[in-house]
Simulated scan of single mutants.
Amino acid sequence: MPFPIVRKNGIPLYIQVKEAVLAEIKTGVWKTGDKLPTERELSEKLKVSRNTVSQAYQELEAEGVLSSVQGRGTFVCDRDDAVRIENRKELLLKIIDVAMEEGLQLGFTLEEFAEFATERARQKLEILSKVRVVFIECNREQVDYFSKKLQFDSGVSIAPLVLEDLSKDTDRYLPDVVASDLVITTFFHYDEVKELLGSRKNVLAISLDPQLETIVRIARIPMGRKIGLVSKSENFAGKVLLALKNAGLDGVDIRVFTQKMEMDIADIVHSLDVIICSPGRRREVEQHMTRRQEIIEFVYKPDVASINLLRAALIDLRRQ
């Protein structure tokens, strides 16, 4: 199983590992249900760190390509959406079967079990519809974007709050934060938010990672192209550059343009071949594109573990 890992081609190693695994699956080397090598085994074979393989596996699991089973390993999922949904349904039915068996052993009838389950689900939905969450981040673009992306079907209300606003005008914003049911921030700002809130509120930290496809597109930009990063804030631009550095792309020449600069956005766009932009400025950039240019929206997303942790935290709120 030769993997084409190249260490000096500008593409992060974990992305190469991920694409190589996908290639093995697409060519039929690994089929649905096959067990993959462990992270340790694959890292030793490829001579990369275990974290590199772990990151690749996590990305593929988040996309529904792989599935990990505690104590058994990592397996190839069926890529057909209908089949995958059916598999999840089967797993849920098994969980329900176990609960029913335990209910019968406690002396309840199946009719009573169905009644209790329906009522409990209704209670949870009612609770979640009243939950108020505050999401605190350091820049307006990211906090607005993720307050929308983190919405749940249950109707949970997520209010965005910029960290600088909270620190500068604590008296104004603190009462609403304290009155909320849950405060979310990123690991990067967890200590600062905790210091501002003290013991008045528990804070849940989540991890936001650059979208894999974004990193791949930037890594594949041909040499010689004029690249610009257009964002509202210097803070967001700094995070993007740091993310690219961490991905091994710090050698890419990127000019940064923020709203603080006294330059017309049309002139900026016209001078570039590739525009990397924040979600908050994409529409503005597109309006000024007059020739064939590549636009790359730099998107962050919560990792799978953070989303699962957040869902569990929401369910546990106001436990009765």
Rank of each mutant, 00 (worst) to 15 (best):
P37R: 13
Q70L: 12
G228P: 01
E297L: 02
K31Y: 03
S167Q: 06
I15P: 01
V21R: 09
I307K: 15
A62T: 10
F113N: 08
R225F: 08
E141L: 02
I206V: 12
S271C: 00
L182H: 03
L166E: 01
Q293T: 07
E39L: 09
L66H: 06
G238C: 03
D80L: 07
I315H: 11
L92G: 10
F188Y: 13
E41D: 15
V178A: 03
I127D: 11
D81Q: 15
P4I: 02
K239W: 10
M223H: 12
R281V: 13
D253Q: 14
V193W: 09
E63G: 04
F113S: 11
G103R: 06
S68T: 11
D153Y: 10
D191V: 06
K130C: 01
E63R: 15
M100T: 08
Q123T: 07
A20Y: 03
N9A: 07
H189S: 07
T27N: 09
T32K: 06
Q55E: 14
F152Y: 14
L242N: 13
V269N: 03
L229S: 03
L314H: 03
K26W: 05
R50A: 10
S231L: 02
D181W: 05
D169E: 13
G251M: 10
L229K: 04
S147A: 06
I295N: 12
L125M: 11
W30F: 15
K149H: 09
E102F: 06
T214S: 08
H189R: 12
S43H: 11
I85D: 04
V48K: 03
L197W: 06
R217C: 00
L196Y: 01
K148G: 03
A219L: 05
A117C: 01
I268S: 02
L91I: 09
I254A: 06
D169L: 05
V65G: 00
T290N: 13
E61C: 09
V230Q: 08
Q259D: 11
A56C: 11
A23G: 02
N9T: 05
P302V: 07
A266Q: 10
L161A: 01
N87T: 01
S157G: 00
L91K: 15
R225S: 10
I127H: 06
G224F: 10
G198F: 07
C77V: 06
I11M: 14
T290F: 09
V183Q: 00
K168L: 12
E41L: 08
V304A: 14
L182M: 03
Q58V: 03
I275S: 04
D191L: 04
E192M: 11
E86M: 12
I158L: 07
F152G: 09
R217N: 11
R172G: 00
L128K: 15
K194C: 14
I275E: 02
M261A: 03
T258D: 01
M100A: 08
S167K: 13
G228N: 04
N235P: 01
R88V: 00
N139Q: 07
L208H: 05
D97L: 09
D191K: 14
D153F: 08
V304T: 15
S306C: 05
M289G: 00
R220V: 00
D176K: 14
I265Y: 02
A20T: 04
Q105N: 13
